[in-house]
């Protein structure tokens, strides 16, 4: 561990610079993703009352389930943070453990969400039923696929950490995954508030 610290110290200047540029580039991607979500939120807000005689948001909202999903994502914010802290301590086992925990929590979210979608589709409330449901499934579905992308990315990083151990290169990759994860969870807070909470007021 000492040698790793020394090795990092030697190349500190160079790695820190290129690493922070990668993270900044990733940040720019997140900002463009934010605009994508803004257009989906705008479409949802415009179409939310166009139910074509079918169900509205109040009828399909199961608040306790949505609160559970929100709490699950908030916990995963903490666990991916712990993975980041383990990387700072150069603890390979710690990083892998916390990434695994994050993966399982994210998987739970994806499962609960899928259950909600399939219950809607089973009774004929699919995305072709009304403009409201199209906007609903588009916004929720895009967020859902973001979480799945995060899960795949987490698996890849677990494999890479297992084979390569911790390094400044891996730290940069984990930082990007952490940013992505926190970003997707902030989007969920707004789905929770704008779609669900404001939907049942």
């Amino acid at each position: 561990m000492m040698t790793e610290v020394l090795a990092n110290q030697d190349h500190h200047e160079h790695h820190d610079d290129s690493g922070s540029r990668v993270v900044f580039g990733f940040w720019i991607y997140l900002m463009s993703d934010l605009i994508l979500f803004a257009t989906l939120f705008a479409a949802y807000a415009v179409l939310r009352n166009n139910t074509y005689g079918g169900v509205g948001i109040a009828q399909i909202t199961d608040l306790p389930r949505v609160l559970t999903e929100t709490l699950v994502l908030l916990i995963s914010n903490l666990t991916i943070g712990f993975a980041f802290l383990s990387q700072q301590r150069a603890s390979k086992q710690g990083v892998i453990l916390w990434l695994l925990v994050t993966f399982l929590i994210g998987l739970a979210f994806v499962g609960i969400e899928y259950q909600g979608f399939s219950q809607l589709v089973a009774v004929g409330n699919d995305w072709q039923r009304s403009a409201f449901l199209s906007a609903f499934f588009t916004l929720l579905g895009v967020h859902w696929f973001h979480v799945i992308a995060g899960l795949l990315w987490t698996i890849i990083l677990i494999i890479q950490f297992a084979s390569q151990g911790t390094s400044s290169k891996m730290a940069t990759r984990l930082t990007c995954l952490g940013l992505f994860w926190h970003f997707v969870n902030i989007i969920w807070i707004f789905i929770f508030t704008i779609v669900y909470l404001m939907g049942v007021i």
Partner: peptide, 9 residues
């Protein structure tokens, strides 16, 4: 959460 990752940029 985000504030932690900000470096020289």
């Amino acid at each position: 959460f985000f504030g932690l990752h900000k470096g020289s940029e």
